[in-house]
Design a protein around this nucleic acid. Structure first.
Lengths: 342, 342
DNA sequence: TTGAAAGCGCTAACAT
DNA sequence: ATGTTAGCGCTTTCAA
């Protein structure tokens, strides 16, 4: 049998559809209290739930947004999504989750589908993405917020979020220096990734501020996984003179370094200080607990959807106010760093 | 300016809306090729995208489903969601992700919102849930698939997925026995959780099959975290006689046990064999790589949405065919288990 | 204070 | 081979 509609409610309550619609939308200003009550009773009795698809058709609002990520499995995204979700829930929005699986075409297919479903806005956090996506959204007047992407201005409603690695990494280097370290090394991510280069460069700049020549700081390219750290430490162990401080591109790499070091008889932090980046939940549980540069993932999620909502608000009136914002990183000192060995 | 609609396309192509609709839906059977081309050109020219909200209104189909989880951050869900997503994408469905945050009311609010948006079906994987949710869905004829929940039959379109821990855990025990182990211990999850009790009981039963008296097998209650494992091993180390084989309720616990054991001078697997459960991605990278009972998370996701699609198909015709299916666990042997010490 | 009617963008009978 | 028309379930003037 068909769902119960506003007409059914109207009939049961003995009023017109318009009146039911009014109570649905809280426009009781001129309504006789009696009427309102009759309508509400009818609604309860029938267990009526208004159809948002019909509502959307007239109102042009769907209370729906979407987030595109490369891979939900990546813990980075899990926290971001959490932040998005919480904010969305407060505003009664629902969130489509789209996994691009690092596939540009798949992402575009999602974008098209989302446009067809008339989502009000999209957050793009996929590490691989394409300007085509933004062009498509733009053509359809769907605002977007993107993470870490240089947007060629196209008159689009596109706000961006940048991550300031410099601050947290500078703090890490200051911390190293304060502990008396002088010989450094970096285990990076795959250097074809922009973020890997950003992190490395930030490390170099931070060292330069302390007068440490960049040429004296070797970089070993890792894979952002534990295994990469394990491999890296083998190379490090052969270096002479031995570095006493290593900055890893992420926490997993740092954990691999620590595990591998132990296997080589190098003890962290006694013989070697290690700093990671991310502050994943595991960092705290590691042995020793990891000193690391915190990346505020949950906040990125919150910020993203808030910026999206701003775009939605403004796009109805003013031309639009795309914006660029930065989130900042910071150092979390735990026990994988200590005074430099003599 | 307003979006371009089917009427705009019709005007530009010089045909009626019906004709446009036909090409949109691929009903060209009786259509003059010329006409079709004109329409397609008009669509391209205008960059027209049909509104799925309007389509949904007539078709009563939204191509949208939802998944409720307690917490996206939990890696268990990440993989499940991945499985769901991939299948959904194939069928051109979009997926609403809802984080209940272990809050029953929040979950109910989501359910209501989803009903209003006319999602075609819902997957419930929240570890805390309520029959109210199902009742609400049922009243609105929205089919559901739930994980690990005894559904009081209510004539609803509710299929369920169960996890058969027994098989994998039995394999683990068989493996222990084959390696000559005789003294066992279990580090469980919090025993107020059903799954924690299920896993413990499965372990006991498996041992019983080998004639090992359950009374001889102590259980230490952990917290499913690394720290719980670390604590547990301290207790274990004081036991006499020392157990040689420990089954942990999950991989994190197992990793904590291994880390804690090392700190006590107990070496895994030489002195102690350890088996985890979950087969999280970290298990493989652990040191030593962890022998564990695999929980097929991705497959659970795939299965869930497939079962949901089945429900959608059948609910249009036959009364409906709710179903119960089981996924099975299996042992993955790595290097945290070895022959029992003499 | 409430109702009638038109319209949101599309689909599907029914005509032609 | 294509057009006309009547909804789908709701909101929103405009009247009364």
């Amino acid at each position: 049998m068909p769902r119960t509609t506003i007409a059914d409610v109207a009939k049961v309550a003995g009023v017109s559809k318009a009146t039911v619609s009014r109570v649905l939308n809280g426009n009781y200003e001129y309504m006789k209290p009696r009427t309102r009550i009759r309508v509400e009773e009818a609604i309860d009795k029938l267990g009526y739930r208004p159809s948002n698809v019909a509502r959307s058709l007239t109102s042009n609002r769907t209370s729906t947004v979407a987030i595109l990520v490369s891979d939900v499995g990546n813990p980075f995204y899990a926290d971001v999504i959490h932040g998005v979700e919480d904010e969305a829930f407060k505003k009664n929005y629902d969130v489509f989750l789209c996994n691009t699986n690092y596939d540009l075409n798949r992402g575009l297919a999602f974008i098209r589908s989302l446009i067809d479903k008339r989502v009000e806005g999209v957050m793009i956090m996929s590490s691989r993405m394409s300007d085509l996506w933004l062009a498509e959204l733009n053509r359809n007047n769907v605002p977007a917020v993107v993470l870490d992407w240089e947007v060629k201005a196209m008159g689009a409603d596109v706000s961006t979020i940048g991550v300031n690695y410099a601050i947290g990494i500078q703090a890490a280097v200051d911390h190293f220096i304060a502990l008396g370290h002088q010989r450094f090394i970096h285990v990076s991510g795959p250097l074809h990734l922009q973020t890997a280069r950003d992190r490395r460069d930030a490390f170099w700049s931070a060292l330069a501020r302390h007068g440490i020549p960049v040429e004296s700081v070797p970089v070993i390219e890792g894979d952002l996984q534990i295994e990469g750290g394990r491999q890296a430490i083998k190379t490090i162990a052969k270096l002479s003179p031995q570095p006493t401080a290593v900055f890893a591109a992420n926490d997993l790499t740092a954990m691999g370094i620590i595990a591998g070091a132990r296997a080589q008889g190098i003890e962290v932090p006694r013989d070697l200080s290690v700093v990671g980046l991310d502050n994943i939940w595991l960092a705290e549980q590691a042995d020793p607990p990891l000193t690391t540069v915190n990346l505020p993932r949950y906040e990125i999620g919150q910020l993203a959807i808030q910026m999206l909502f701003d775009l939605l608000d403004s796009s109805s009136e003013r031309p639009s106010t795309p914006v660029r914002r930065e989130v900042t990183t910071s150092l979390v000192v735990r026990q994988s760093t200590a005074a430099a060995p003599q």
